[in-house]
Amino acid sequence: MIGDRLKLLSNPGIFGSAALLAGIALLASRLLLYPPGNAFVFIEVGILFLFYGLLVLGLNLQYGFTGIINFGHVLFFGVGGYATAMLVAPESARGIALGLPWPIGLAGAIIAAALVAGIVGFASLPLREEYVAIATLAAAELFTDVTANLPSITGGAIGYVSIPQPINIWAGGHYGTFLTSTLLVMIGVLSFGYVVFRRLTDGPYGRVLRAIRADKEITDTIGKHVFRYEMEVFVFAAIVAAIAGSIYALFIGAAAPGLYTADVTFLLWIGMLVGGAGNHRGVLAGLGIVMAFELLTRFLNDLPYYTSQQFGALRLAMIGLLLIVIVRYRPEGIWGNAKEQGIE
């Protein structure tokens, strides 16, 4: 009996709903939670994992399923963050700030992402794959450059620092409760995202995407409008990323160019390749592994001989090496399907 109940929980839709409800209940109950002091950093990284998880699912849809090489995915995370910031930040902020309620910020993020993705996708997707990579990378760099250099429009290099944080307000400003309820809510959001992505790819739609990844020309010849599918996937993933970006801005109360750099894209790619492109749970696990590695090595900063800055360099060198090794020896990642990924 209990076994059956537990099995229900393994259904991500139910699991997600449960988490979301738990989060809301926590906030409504006005319970004050005091996680142990050093648990905070784990919860914070866990929350960041959940946000990045939405990004990696979108990236996986593009690359693992459709064969789109997007090196600028963080762009849409940033578009979502900045759109929300501009709509929701109080008028006292530098840059455009309209002080509107947060749901409008979220809606604005979605609309902005759809527009930007429409333009970037239309310009980049017809190109050959390695040029798509470069074009999307350039678009993302352009975004961070421009936002960092227009103080009166986007707040410059500092960006927005006083965006209202709805969950924090509902938690009465109590950090422990704020973090825990955010964690629960985001588990819910990611679970829903997971369900949507799974449904998209499990069915006939996913079959067409995989056909496109296998061979664009052949797939078009059998009657599928390849460019339209690529645009749909690109824009859809962008919207999901922007939703994540919007909620993230409302979580940390800030939006700044430094949050949306190519380092994020790189982390997503490594996580996806390590876990196994084409496998939703795989890429989430891969992302988790890489982020866990980075978190745990932070505690080793206190080793003698290496300063923490040098330790950072060691960590980055190892990540670079990891990427090289994966591409060379295990391109399908830990959980990817080599046959479906076209690896001999």
Binding site: P204, R207, A214, F236
Partner: peptide, 29 residues
């Protein structure tokens, strides 16, 4: 022109024209 990363059956299925399941909304819902 066989698609190498799809199964034999999927190769044939994917050609079916006007499949509602090949639209985003129908697939998710």
């Amino acid at each position: 022109g066989v698609l190498p990363t799809l199964t034999v059956k999927e190769n044939v299925l994917v050609a079916a024209p006007d499949h509602p399941g090949e639209q985003m909304f129908h697939s998710i819902a």
